[in-house]
Amino acid sequence: MYKLMIVDDEPQILEGMKRILDWKQYGFVRIETCESTPEAISKVVDLQPDVAIFDVCIGKDYGYEAIRRLNELHIPTKYIIMSGYSEFKYAQEAIRCGVKDYLLKPVERTKLQQVIEKIIVEDLHGTVGNMNEDALNKDRVLGVSYDSLSKLVNRILLMIKTEHAQNITLKSVADRFQMNSTYLGQLFLKETGMKFSEYLMAYRMLLAQERIQSTDEKISYIALCVGYNNLNYFYTHFQSFFGKSPSDLRGKG
Rank of each mutant, 00 (worst) to 15 (best):
Y62R: 09
I119D: 11
F54E: 07
T127M: 07
V99I: 13
I75V: 12
V45I: 13
G98S: 11
K111Q: 15
M131N: 03
C57F: 12
A94W: 03
E39S: 12
Y90D: 02
I31F: 00
D55I: 02
Y90V: 07
P106E: 12
M17P: 10
T110H: 14
A94L: 10
G84A: 15
G63Y: 08
D61H: 12
C34D: 08
D61P: 03
V51C: 02
E10F: 10
T127A: 08
I80M: 03
S42D: 14
R30N: 14
F28W: 10
I80D: 09
I75F: 11
V107F: 09
K89E: 13
E133C: 06
G16F: 04
I119T: 05
A66S: 12
P76W: 09
A52G: 04
I20W: 13
I75K: 00
D9G: 10
Y85A: 11
D50L: 04
I6A: 06
E133M: 10
P49G: 06
Q48K: 07
I6E: 00
I120C: 07
I6R: 02
I67M: 09
I95L: 15
L4S: 02
I119E: 05
F54H: 03
P38Q: 13
D61F: 08
E122G: 10
N71R: 15
Q25H: 03
P11L: 14
D9H: 06
T33D: 05
A66C: 07
R30G: 10
V107K: 11
P76L: 11
M82N: 01
I67P: 00
W23Q: 02
L104D: 04
L70M: 06
C97V: 08
T33K: 06
E108Q: 15
M5G: 03
E117A: 10
I6Q: 11
V107Q: 10
C97H: 09
C97N: 12
E133G: 04
P11I: 12
F28Q: 02
V128W: 00
D55P: 02
Y26P: 05
Q48A: 07
I119A: 01
K78A: 08
G27L: 03
L104S: 06
V121P: 01
L70C: 00
P38S: 14
I80P: 01
F54Y: 08
Y64K: 03
R68L: 13
Y85M: 13
R19Q: 15
E39Y: 11
L103E: 03
L73E: 08
V107S: 02
Y90E: 12
Q25W: 09
N130F: 12
K18C: 09
A91G: 07
E108I: 08
Q92E: 15
R96Y: 15
A40G: 00
V29A: 11
A52K: 06
D101G: 06
A91W: 02
D9F: 04
S36V: 09
K89F: 15
I75D: 06
K24W: 04
I116C: 07
V29L: 13
K3S: 05
T77Q: 07
N132V: 13
R68Q: 15
I13Q: 06
Q114A: 14
M17C: 01
D46S: 14
Y62W: 07
D22M: 08
N71Y: 08
D55L: 01
A91I: 07
H74N: 14
I81Y: 03
